[in-house]
Design a binder for these strands. Structure first.
Lengths: 241, 241
DNA sequence: CCAAAAGTGTTTACAGTACACCCATGG
DNA sequence: CCATGGGTGTACTGTAAACACTTTTGG
């Protein structure tokens, strides 16, 4: 049996359905930092397979949309969060038996969203009949439920990549609001990396990287010296020495 | 129109064909170092689209094979080279218009093969009727023909990744034969990076990385001092400080 | 003995890390 | 005046980079 498509010299004779195709999905590990923890957005599955289990949001790619578009659409549809501030393709998981329904190849992404201080809504917590997702919520990555499919592996890959990328780029911008204090920035780093950093060295490195600019504004929130507010100069990740 | 699949509580009622699917291909940029140049394996397309143009080897993924398996199969089928010594998934290219036939999502890989000294055969240079590839050959990456589809973009991505990975891992093992001299190893680095390295610093770094072991053998090939032969201690890429 | 590639150390510069105190504010 | 978090500089250490001569062989 030959599974290659029929192809002729004449384009009009090309038959796109000459052989069986796998299904293609996108899945996304969407991260945020809230309440001192790194959290990932999961949805509770309402239907077979893995009904009742938690999974990464995702779904089938439509014929007329790019992969990135599909990811943003699924995020909004299944969880109600605003579009991600940063989105990066991670890896494509395509092992033959990874989905019990049929052959499914999943293009995995990870996404970053600002924390709840930014007024980011987490809507869609009531089950919706007729869609795959019954419920959506943020889970701290250090106390996760067991996940459907190979989503634990996807999430582990995403975490590794996020932690690595935080070290040599400015992606952290996507986890913060427009203006922030250096302490808030450092806290985001510490939450994601899972260990604490030296304040003087952190500030020195960040300011030397020329990715931040100071504003004339300050944040006052207690019986202590006010903190200067900073802003990222670019809303895209740039390499940091 | 709803493109989601029908899903029920009962697995037997799941219909994998309830909506239209994209096609999925794998494409691979297979590199080797030969005649002092970094070369990539290209095939000349025999059929529409881009008939007569050069392209990365690749093809449609079968329902019963993993992605890595599909890549190795296509490499052998289309070019006749032995299975790659190293294979790594690169990125998945899925823009809507990237293939004029139909919606095609391509999972791109890059591969590394040892140079011609290893006796590696490059068979399959005669056109084969009935398959996509009419001819296969190695092309130096600094003098490429124009490529079909978005393969120039894929190749550029592969090159960037290969160069980066060479710097902090031991992947170079896949471009060399079992035993080699330190000068041969350095030459591979220089060919891929495109600039020359300091001999003393290179040797110091390689030996300090503890990824090599000396053999009692030497290579003699001319009117000069013989060179000691070395071997990689692991046949998988490991991190180098 | 000559040509050709193998092999070998030291110095310098920079980046990362460790570390402790004064400052501005609200209550 | 005191509690709280904001803000600052220096010394050390290890890694990367620059740099030139001796050794072994074949012809």
């Amino acid at each position: 049996m030959d599974t290659k498509p029929q192809s002729q010299d004449n384009p009009s004779q090309y038959n796109a359905d000459a052989f069986a195709k796998p299904s293609v999905t996108v899945d996304v590990a969407a991260f945020t930092a809230r309440e001192g923890k790194l959290c990932v957005l999961l949805v509770k599955r309402g239907v077979w397979p893995f009904a009742g289990a938690w999974a990464l949001p995702g779904g089938f790619v439509r014929l007329d949309e790019d992969l990135d578009t599909a990811v943003q659409r699924e995020l909004v549809e299944e969880t109600g969060v605003a579009a991600a501030h940063y989105l990066e393709q991670l890896y494509t998981f395509g092992a033959v038996g990874r989905d019990p329904r049929t052959r499914v190849i999943s293009v995995a992404y990870y996404a970053l969203l600002p924390g709840p201080e930014s007024g980011l809504p987490l809507a869609a917590s009531e089950p919706e009949a007729g869609t795959d997702a019954a419920e959506a919520r943020w889970w701290p990555v250090d106390s996760l439920p067991s996940l459907a499919f190979d989503h634990a592996e996807i999430l582990a890959t995403a975490l590794t990549r996020l932690r690595a990328k935080l070290g040599y780029t400015s992606v952290a911008y996507a986890l913060l609001t427009e203006e922030f204090t250096l302490t808030e920035l450092q806290t985001v780093y510490e939450i994601i990396l899972g260990y604490s950093l030296d304040k003087r060295n952190f500030r020195k490195k960040m300011l030397a990287a020329e990715i931040l600019e100071g504003t004339p504004r300050q944040k006052r929130d207690g019986a202590h010296r006010p903190a200067q507010l900073f802003r990222f100069t670019k809303k895209e990740p740039v390499f940091m020495g």
